[in-house]
Structure formats: structure tokens, C-alpha cells
Simulated scan of single mutants.
Amino acid sequence: MITLGTAILGAVCGMLGSFAVLRKQSLLGDAISHAALPGIAIAFLITETKNSYAILIGALISGLIGTFWIRGMVSKTHLKSDTALGLVLSLFFGVGMLLLTYIQKQPNANQAGLDKYLFGQAATLLVSDVWLLAIVGVISLLVLAIFWKELKLLLFDPDYTKTLGFNIKFLDLLITTFIVLAIVLGLQTVGVVLMSAMLLAPAAAARQWTNRLWVMVVLAAIFGAFSGVFGTAISASTNGLSTGPVIVLVASFFVLVSFIFSPERGILFKQIRKYKNRKALKLFKTLSVMYEIAQTHNDVSRPHAIKILNNFLGYSVNTLKELEDQELIKIDGQMWSMTTEGYNKAAQLFNQNMETNE
């Protein structure tokens, strides 16, 4: 049941985190998770029990207040969004820690374990919690399906969305509320400190593999779900490992793999493409020099000494070998000559380069 709960949480966070990443609100998850801490403490002080629903409501209200404060500071003052996020994060987290310290000193045995919300404790997930996660996941899917076109427009062109008559404030509030809800639901499993990574890591990994929104959302949900499953399995198989941090580490592993091996944006394939481009440029330079030399003779296959090329940049033994393998030139000892195919290709490349420069 715990594995199912963490899988659902990962999928929901991945889906909604995609919108946070694309809206360049990566720090929003960190601010909201820390802003939820005072709500957790206040809910406990009011109810004097660790009732999960009461704590959830308190965290949700506190998280929403923190979100509205951030938006208010950005819109009403000259503060940048990152400054507002930092201020709200520090203020709410400080108040939350102060309240938790106060609660720990109270003669009430129920406060034991309340600090688990800082780093999470997946083992405390109940069947009712998993059902709640599932319900929120289904509702999130329905909302995304119903408002898909509007949310897609809002992501990439808010001004155009507004000119079409859509209420961008409502759409913004809608997606932000569900992001806050996903963060609050994950506090019990991952904790305040690490919840931001759970929201952003699957989405960041998915972004490396595609340029299409729906593909990114699906991939982020898959990465998030697998992070939950694998993280829970690793934690259960080894004594002393907290589930929340392990889940975040697995999600970070997906990000690392994506950053390195994704075909379009991956570091590995970028370096391969750079190497191929440099190699092609080197071949083109050498072939261009050969073409200019061959142009001065009626017979393009007339041999020339290789040492003539020493005066030109781009020439190397490997370059000549590659051109010979492509049957663009012929090498005979210390002499080279162009083939008809090589001459024609060089002429085509030379003319294209001239047109580009013009």
C-alpha cells in the first residue's frame, strides 16, 4: 500500500510539476512546501491531535496564503519573484519551526512524531491517505483534460490567451491550487525540506526528452511513479533508510540520466554532434582547398603533392584518409588527386558557401 501511495504521489507531482517547470516557477514548490509548515503546527495546536485531514487542511490553507503573498509582493511592489519566494520561504519556515519548538515543550504526548513532516515518513501512510492521493490524481487528470487547450495557451502565450477572452487569473489560480495541493499531500511522505525536488525532478527529466507538452506530462508522471516505486523498494530492502530521501535520490538519478543521454538535449549526444560538425567542417575546408587547386587545371584528376596542403589550415593525414574512404580523392604515395565525384561535391559545397556569404 505504501508503494502504491508513493507511486501515485510521484505521478501527480510529475504531471503538475511540468507546468511549474515550464512557467519558470521552479522555486515555487520549495516556497509552498516551507510555507505549509506553520499550517501543520497551527492545525495541531487547534485539534491537539495528529489528525491527517486536519493537518492537511491547515497545510493547504497556509500554503495558499504563502502563494498569494508571493503573488501580491510581485504585483504590488518592485520585488522580483525570486526575492518574494525567498522572503516567504524564510518567514513561513521560521514561524513553523518556532511553533514546532513550542509544541514540543507542551505536556502533550500527541506531539511525538510531528517533526516527521520535515523529512517525511512514508511508513505512516494509511489506506485512507492512499485513497485521498488517488482521488486528487483523478481530479487533476480531469482538470488537465478539460482545460488542456487553455492551460497550454497560458503556458506559452498569456497575452494571446487573454485576447481570446479566457480568464487567465482563473486558469493561473486553478493550476497553482493543484500544485499547492500536490505539495501538501506529499509532505507526509517526502517532507517539507525535500518536497520541491519531488515536484520538479520528474518534470525536469521529462523536459530533456521532448518538445511536446502532452508527452512531457506523461513522461513526468511515469518518472515520478517509478521514483516512488523504486525509492520505496530500496528503502524497504535496507534498514535505516528513510523513504522520502531515497525517492528523491531516485528521481534525481532520472534527471542525471536524462541530462546525459537524451537525444536532443543530452550532454553526450551534444558532444557527439559537436565532434561530427567539427569533423565535417575540417573535411569541407580541406576539400575546398583541393577544389581551388584543381580549378587551375583542366584535368581534375591531375596528381598534386601532399606537401602543398601544409600551407592550409584543416589538413591532416586523418582528413585525407576520410576523404579517400568516401572516394572523393585518391592518394598515391605522397600525391593526391580529386575524383570527379569529389570535384562535383566540392563545387556544390563551394557554391553554397558563396551564396550563404552573399
Rank of each mutant, 00 (worst) to 15 (best):
residue 3 T to K: 03
residue 4 L to S: 07
residue 9 L to H: 09
residue 9 L to W: 03
residue 10 G to A: 07
residue 19 F to C: 07
residue 20 A to F: 11
residue 32 I to S: 01
residue 34 H to I: 03
residue 35 A to I: 06
residue 36 A to V: 09
residue 43 A to G: 02
residue 48 E to R: 15
residue 48 E to P: 00
residue 54 A to S: 11
residue 55 I to Y: 01
residue 61 I to Y: 00
residue 62 S to F: 09
residue 69 W to L: 15
residue 72 G to S: 11
residue 73 M to E: 04
residue 73 M to S: 10
residue 76 K to L: 14
residue 76 K to E: 13
residue 77 T to G: 12
residue 78 H to V: 08
residue 82 D to S: 06
residue 82 D to H: 05
residue 88 V to I: 15
residue 91 L to I: 15
residue 93 F to Q: 02
residue 95 V to C: 10
residue 96 G to A: 05
residue 97 M to S: 05
residue 99 L to K: 06
residue 101 T to P: 00
residue 103 I to T: 02
residue 105 K to A: 11
residue 112 A to R: 12
residue 115 D to F: 03
residue 120 G to V: 04
residue 120 G to F: 04
residue 122 A to G: 12
residue 123 A to L: 12
residue 126 L to P: 00
residue 129 D to S: 11
residue 129 D to N: 14
residue 129 D to P: 04
residue 132 L to S: 11
residue 134 A to T: 14
residue 136 V to M: 11
residue 140 S to N: 04
residue 142 L to S: 06
residue 146 I to W: 15
residue 148 W to P: 07
residue 151 L to F: 03
residue 155 L to E: 07
residue 157 D to F: 05
residue 158 P to I: 05
residue 160 Y to L: 15
residue 165 G to H: 12
residue 178 F to E: 03
residue 179 I to G: 07
residue 180 V to R: 07
residue 184 V to K: 01
residue 187 L to T: 07
residue 188 Q to C: 00
residue 193 V to F: 05
residue 197 A to V: 05
residue 198 M to E: 09
residue 199 L to N: 02
residue 201 A to H: 04
residue 201 A to S: 13
residue 205 A to I: 04
residue 206 A to L: 05
residue 206 A to E: 05
residue 207 R to S: 07
residue 207 R to A: 10
residue 214 W to L: 12
residue 219 L to C: 09
residue 221 A to W: 00
residue 223 F to G: 01
residue 225 A to Q: 06
residue 226 F to L: 15
residue 227 S to T: 09
residue 227 S to M: 09
residue 228 G to Q: 06
residue 230 F to V: 15
residue 232 T to N: 14
residue 235 S to E: 05
residue 238 T to M: 11
residue 247 I to P: 01
residue 251 A to H: 06
residue 253 F to I: 14
residue 254 F to H: 03
residue 262 S to G: 03
residue 264 E to T: 15
residue 265 R to M: 04
residue 265 R to C: 01
residue 270 K to E: 12
residue 270 K to P: 02
residue 271 Q to V: 06
residue 273 R to T: 11
residue 279 K to H: 12
residue 283 L to Q: 12
residue 287 L to Q: 04
residue 288 S to Q: 15
residue 289 V to T: 13
residue 292 E to K: 13
residue 294 A to I: 00
residue 302 R to W: 09
residue 304 H to Q: 12
residue 304 H to I: 09
residue 307 K to G: 01
residue 308 I to M: 13
residue 309 L to W: 07
residue 310 N to V: 00
residue 311 N to P: 00
residue 316 S to R: 09
residue 316 S to G: 10
residue 316 S to A: 14
residue 317 V to C: 03
residue 320 L to R: 02
residue 326 Q to G: 08
residue 326 Q to M: 14
residue 328 L to E: 04
residue 329 I to Y: 04
residue 332 D to W: 00
residue 335 M to K: 10
residue 336 W to T: 03
residue 337 S to T: 09
residue 340 T to L: 13
residue 342 G to Y: 00
residue 346 A to G: 10
residue 347 A to P: 02
residue 347 A to R: 13
residue 354 M to R: 15
residue 354 M to E: 14
residue 355 E to H: 13
residue 355 E to C: 00
